Amino acid sequence: RKAEAWFDPEGFFLAEKEGRLVGFHWTKVHAAERLGEVYVLGVSPDAQGGGLGRSLTTIGLRHLAGRGLPTAMLYVDADNKAAVSVYERLGFVTYETDLMYRTET
């Protein structure tokens, strides 16, 4: 993805603890729509529950706001209750819900 035209290394944030990567946040800009995106957020399982996801998301949102983007979006699996909780506490609300169906053949 780093080769994509939308990739901006200034919107890619890493969190380290004692020299070990424990989290990251990768933002994306949809310039034509003037829309920022929480593209990918990840926190190591042993670092979860301490507010790192919230901190990384906030850093990314500040970066996007600094680029003049008035709105940000993200996609999250509704079953990921921890992530949904973080995003809702940050002010995100459900805009659209997608469903996926599957059958065994």
Score class of each variant (00 low, 15 high):
G23M: 02
G23W: 05
F24V: 00
F24S: 00
H25W: 05
T27P: 05
K28R: 10
K28M: 01
A31S: 06
A32M: 07
R34S: 12
R34C: 07
R34M: 11
L35F: 04
G36Q: 01
G36I: 01
V38R: 06
V38L: 09
V38K: 06
Y39W: 12
V40R: 03
L41C: 03
L41E: 02
G42F: 09
G42S: 04
G42P: 02
G42I: 02
G42H: 04
G42L: 05
V43I: 12
P45M: 04
D46E: 15
D46L: 09
G49F: 07
G49P: 00
G49H: 04
G49M: 03
G50R: 08
L52E: 10
L52N: 11
L52G: 09
S55V: 12
T57S: 11
T57D: 03
T58F: 07
T58N: 05
I59Y: 09
I59F: 07
I59V: 15
G60I: 04
G60W: 03
G60S: 10
G60D: 07
R62L: 10
R62Q: 13
H63I: 09
H63N: 12
A65N: 04
A65L: 11
G66L: 02
R67T: 00
G68H: 07
G68V: 07
L69A: 00
P70Y: 03
P70R: 00
P70D: 00
T71C: 13
A72T: 14
A72E: 09
A72L: 11
M73D: 11
M73T: 13
M73F: 10
Y75G: 15
Y75D: 13
V76L: 08
V76K: 13
V76P: 00
V76Q: 09
D77Q: 15
D77G: 14
A78I: 13
D79T: 15
D79Y: 13
D79I: 12
A82K: 13
A82N: 13
A83H: 12
A83V: 09
A83K: 10
A83P: 08
A83R: 11
A83T: 08
S85H: 14
S85Y: 10
S85V: 06
S85L: 07
S85R: 12
V86G: 04
V86K: 06
V86Q: 06
Y87N: 06
Y87A: 05
Y87S: 06
R89E: 09
R89M: 08
L90K: 08
L90F: 13
G91Q: 11
G91R: 10
F92E: 11
V93Y: 14
V93G: 10
T94D: 07
T94K: 08
T94Y: 07
T94N: 04
T94P: 05
T94G: 02
Y95F: 12
Y95L: 14
Y95C: 09
E96P: 01
T97Q: 04
D98V: 03
L99I: 01
L99W: 08
L99D: 01
M100H: 10
M100A: 09
